[in-house]
Nucleic acid binder design. Structure first.
Lengths: 149, 149
DNA sequence: ACGCTATTGCAACGCACTTGCATTTGTCAA
DNA sequence: TTGACAAATGCAAGTGCGTTGCAATAGCGT
């Protein structure tokens, strides 16, 4: 895993190249994101960041998320409830499985499914640009399999 | 294809069994949905239905969509823009490919991808409950293939 | 240190969707 | 048919997430 400090520093240069500024607020939000191992929404990010700097405002979070997304520093997802959730983007492409009972989000990736999607699009006469795949599942209890359980 | 009239009549019985009423508004919305071959949102359905009966209100459309979904008469999807789109449910399961240029929605289904998803979930220790799969693609121009085109 | 302008906080706004309430209207029983 | 009761409707107000106009603040190059 890359260190948080390096990540933030690296992003600072990226911003500067785009003529943007590395503000206290952006640094703070970036840190919260880097420390997150889940998929928080704007309010969640705000809450965590606000605890560290109570002058932060929610609209700054929204604006910052937009900047970060444009810069490719984070990825935005909207699961079933429709609210935008974020994760930092310094990782391999992956899709998500959501536990329908707990709401827990599990990441996974499958070359087979990526390839299959590309092929399906091709068969329909399309070049695949991107996709959205979410699996919703229920945890299997080990030892219970089949109707006769 | 099933006739619209039968579909509406069939649904009427379904409603009655659930202790609900077949009102003029529901009949009207059902007809609009049956005649739609696209994936309209609530406002789109309202516009089409309003043209046939200008006493209809938008909140009735929203409420009716909820009833229809609960009864399993329609399916709700939310693509990238987040607004809910609807289609009648008397068809096989399918996923969607969205043309990123025109917004056109193409339906497709693939047993291979269904099976693969089930397997992936199983490998993570989950039983697949449902999924959401959307492909976003760009129309391939015939005769242009590869970089040297 | 200075000045330009990006960025911020705040409050107001936009949009999709929901809801409280008084009124209308299916439906079922007589 | 008619009557009555609960379900459904229209309207307007309310939610919730996200955006935006504006005046004040603060990065950053000089």
């Amino acid at each position: 895993m890359t260190g948080i400090a390096q990540r933030v520093a690296g992003f600072e240069g990226q911003l500067r190249d785009a003529g943007l500024r590395m503000t206290q607020q952006r640094r703070l939000i970036l840190r919260v994101l880097a420390e997150a191992d889940d998929h928080p929404d704007a309010k969640g990010i705000f809450t965590r960041a606000f605890a560290l700097d109570p002058t932060l405002s929610l609209s700054t979070v929204y604006r910052t998320m937009k900047v970060l997304e444009t810069q490719g520093a984070i990825e935005r997802h909207a699961f079933e409830d429709g609210v935008s959730r974020y994760e930092h983007a310094d990782q391999e492409h992956h899709d998500h499985l959501i536990d329908v009972e707990s709401g827990e989000v599990i990441e996974f990736s499958s070359d087979a499914i990526e390839e299959l999607q590309r092929r399906i699009a091709a068969e329909l006469g399309y070049e695949l640009v991107r996709h959205r795949l979410e699996l919703y599942g229920r945890k299997k209890r080990p030892g219970v399999r089949g109707k006769k359980g």
